[in-house]
Write a protein that binds this DNA or RNA. Structure first.
Lengths: 108, 108
DNA sequence: ATAATCTACAACCTTGTGGTTGTAGATGAG
DNA sequence: CTCATCTACAACCACAAGGTTGTAGATTAT
């Protein structure tokens, strides 16, 4: 699921199909890559349950899985906090008064 | 620089050498990988200027580059905001009232 | 001098990712 | 039926990243 949203193209696809159904080929036209590539992206999103396909004639209409995407965004928010904590950790260390010998040669 | 901090091991190395000098071999002992692997990580950090090496006898003492790491954390905070915006974007879409099937008309 | 240690670096391996091409099955249009 | 379109999937390619092994140069210890 995280992996599914790790790719920019897939994120873009998700935001688009959240707003309306699109056939795979219609989606494919939006990106500078082959149909097969987009089809694989969709497959990954579908496998992560972030997207659902509905058959309509010979087309496969893709739509965003609202609940799953909502869960995903929540999870991402969590991870964001963890990441924030990491940054804060480095900040703390930098703020500590006892830095052994931070002599990086900037001779004046 | 971002790439340098993209790896967990490297981040760990940074936090450690921010708190005191460590020889490359001393660092290497901390991780379940070969000396060469750690040495490469250190080289990457050094190349990104996040870390500085100081020769002491036959050892190479590594210490964190305070200013650079501070800059990096600031940058990461920025990116975090961008990422947050992305999540918010999806959230907005989810919040929109009209999730029906807006037609994807291709005016030919 | 010899051995042991620390470091640097090159070559190679493996894995994972995104992409392309090619093929085949379904389905609707003429 | 025949053709064009949409889809699925397998095979293959290119590339990057993290790791390992092996080798060589420095430096300290015996």
């Amino acid at each position: 699921m995280l992996h599914a949203l790790a790719d920019p193209t897939r994120r873009d696809i998700v935001t688009h199909v959240l707003q309306g159904e699109h056939s795979v080929s219609a989606l494919a036209r939006r990106y500078p890559m082959s149909f097969a590539a987009v089809q694989k992206h969709v497959a990954i999103l579908e496998r992560a349950d972030l997207v659902t396909k509905r058959r309509h004639g010979r087309e496969q209409l893709v739509s965003g899985n609202i609940a799953a995407v909502r869960d995903a965004t929540a999870l991402l928010a969590q991870l964001e906090e963890i990441w924030r904590a990491r940054i804060a950790r480095m900040g703390e260390i930098l703020a500590e008064p006892n830095h052994p010998e931070p002599n990086q040669g900037e001779p004046t």
